[in-house]
Amino acid sequence: MTENVWPVVELRQYTLRPGTRDVLIELFDRELVETQEAVGMRIVAQFRDEDDPDRFVWVRAFPDLATRGAALTAFYVDGAAWRTHAPAARATMVDTDNALLLQPASATAGLALPDGRPGVHATDLPESRVLATIYYLDTPQAEFAEFFDNQVRPVLAEAGASPIACYVTDPAPNTFAALPVRTESVFVWFALFDNADRRAEHLERLAATPTWTEDVYPQIAKRLSGPPEQLHLAPTARSMLR
């Protein structure tokens, strides 16, 4: 089993019509995974947002920005799969503009993923859970990334969460204007847990750790432009990140 790191990443959060999330996930996992990958991208993860029954969160990646533009054009403009399934997909969607274009915070900070995923007919949901935290920065990205590695990461690890990947906003121009991306400066980190209980235990331990509440988190807060966003995510049956 080999691992691949894809340096251009989109984190996409879709607001859906009430009661339609499972409809979209079934369609997405059946029809819109391999068809996107066939034109040059990698579908990294698909999630249910456990705090919002009408939110679908997913991650896709590209080898570089030029490939991103070409691949998205091939899929959304020229491709038969999107032309066929877009009406059904769009019928579930209220807003799809909440998207961040990201790059690894350092040379070794990107998600490393195994080749392969559960097959198209997979229905078993993994017990694993993901925590994604978005910090909206009021400080240079490189400075915050260094601070995170030196000051934040050790405290998170002691509380049971070792970040598996960290990203920052990619400042390059959007190479596919038909899909807008947000331009805020952000730092995003992901942690993977065996199950929901392990994630809850981490959050409880962190909240009860004086080093975090009295020292580290206040240092984070003074470097931010607004409150952090925390996503509690459950992988779908075909999510590669699980």
Rank of each mutant, 00 (worst) to 15 (best):
E3I: 07
W6G: 01
V9N: 02
V9C: 00
R12V: 08
R12N: 06
Y14M: 12
Y14S: 04
L16R: 14
L24N: 02
I25Q: 04
L27M: 10
D29L: 11
Q36D: 02
V39Y: 02
M41C: 04
I43H: 07
V44H: 07
P53E: 12
D54A: 14
D54Y: 08
F56M: 12
W58L: 07
W58H: 09
W58D: 00
R60P: 08
A61F: 03
A61C: 04
F62A: 00
L65Y: 00
A66M: 11
A66I: 09
A66W: 08
T67V: 09
R68Q: 04
A71E: 02
L72F: 01
T73S: 14
Y76I: 00
V77R: 13
A80W: 09
A81G: 14
W82F: 12
R83P: 06
P87I: 13
A91C: 13
D97K: 15
L100Y: 09
P104H: 01
A105G: 02
A105W: 04
S106G: 07
A107N: 03
A107R: 08
A109T: 02
A109N: 00
P118S: 13
P118D: 10
G119L: 08
T123I: 07
T123S: 11
D124Y: 08
P126G: 09
E127W: 15
E127S: 15
S128V: 12
V130E: 12
V130D: 10
L131P: 01
A132G: 10
I134Q: 06
Y135C: 04
L137Q: 07
D149Y: 08
D149V: 13
V152K: 14
V155M: 09
A157F: 06
A157K: 14
C166L: 01
V168M: 02
D170C: 00
P173G: 09
F176M: 07
A178P: 05
P180K: 13
T183E: 08
S185W: 04
S185P: 03
V188Q: 01
F190S: 02
A191V: 06
L192G: 03
F193L: 10
F193P: 08
D194H: 11
D194C: 09
R198N: 05
R199H: 03
E201M: 01
E201R: 01
L203K: 15
A207F: 15
A208Q: 06
T209G: 04
W212T: 11
W212L: 12
D215R: 13
D215A: 12
D215P: 09
I220M: 08
I220A: 04
E229V: 12
H232W: 04
H232K: 08
L233E: 03
A234I: 08
P235Y: 11
S239C: 13
L241M: 13
